[in-house]
């Protein structure tokens, strides 16, 4: 489904396919996008290390809220989905369409588990009293992780369509492998971004006796 059907006859100046190059460019741009969101969150964490006040007027610390075991689990799942994605790309390059389908189904499954965890987490946090409206922390947390979740959801949709498209027989050969590889680039990128978010938003809160920002509860809170 390349716009440059003549790509076979006319190789590109760099030897990199247009579609792969434009995906790398998009990812460069997306780095700045997430960079801005993550900076916003960290900046406000530094300014307001104390957390937020819930509807009952209780002061709450972010470590009370996090279920770090659950988030670690979903992070692990997302990492493993990247592994399966790499297998799917490799299968496609070898022309093993059945292996591709199996692996991509695994990626989709893991992606959905991750999204499910996020939905659970959001609902849980909301009931615990953190809303997008009641604090700056709520605003930055939900918008940052929600934007990442949207990226995952788009990736899942993309892969689902690719999975069904593979049954039409049109997803094959060199161009088909390239399309899968590009989806893989996107998926791995989204995964890497999550590793950064998991570190910057979740893990660092447990550094030091009072959390990295100086106030807050001991890391063993809960």
């Amino acid at each position: 489904m390349s716009d440059t059907a003549a790509a076979h006859e006319a190789p590109t100046s760099t030897g990199i396919d247009h579609k792969k190059l434009i995906m790398w460019l998009f990812l460069a741009s997306d780095c700045m996008f997430f960079g801005t969101l993550i900076s916003t969150h960290l900046l406000y964490r530094k300014l307001f290390p104390a957390g937020f006040t819930d509807a009952e007027g209780h002061q709450r610390f972010i470590q009370n809220l996090f279920n770090i075991e659950l988030t670690s689990f979903s992070t692990f799942i997302l990492l493993m989905s990247s592994f399966l994605m790499a297998l799917a790309v490799s299968a496609m390059h070898k022309g093993q369409i059945k292996s591709f389908r199996r692996n991509v189904l695994g990626v989709i499954f893991f992606g959905v588990i991750f999204l499910g965890c996020q939905v659970y987490e959001f609902t849980h946090f909301y009931h615990e009293g953190l809303t997008i409206q009641n604090s700056v922390l709520g605003s930055t947390f939900y918008v940052l992780t929600g934007t990442h979740g949207t990226h995952v959801a788009i990736g899942v949709l993309w892969l689902i369509m690719m999975y069904f498209y593979s049954f039409t027989g049109k997803l094959g050969g060199h161009m088909g492998a390239l399309d899968v590889e590009i989806a893989g680039l996107y998926w791995h990128f989204v995964d890497i971004v999550w590793i950064i978010i998991f570190t910057a938003v979740y893990l660092v809160e447990y550094l030091g006796p009072n959390g990295i920002w100086g106030t807050g509860l001991p890391a063993v809170a809960k």
Binding site: M32, L43, I132, Q133, S135, V136, T140
Partner: peptide, 28 residues
Amino acid sequence: PAITVALIELMFDRTFGANFFNPSAGGQ
């Protein structure tokens, strides 16, 4: 991307009541 994020944040403030730039809630 910087303006895109800034616009998203401002949009969340105005449409969904977020606090990114709301001085009464600590926004900067």
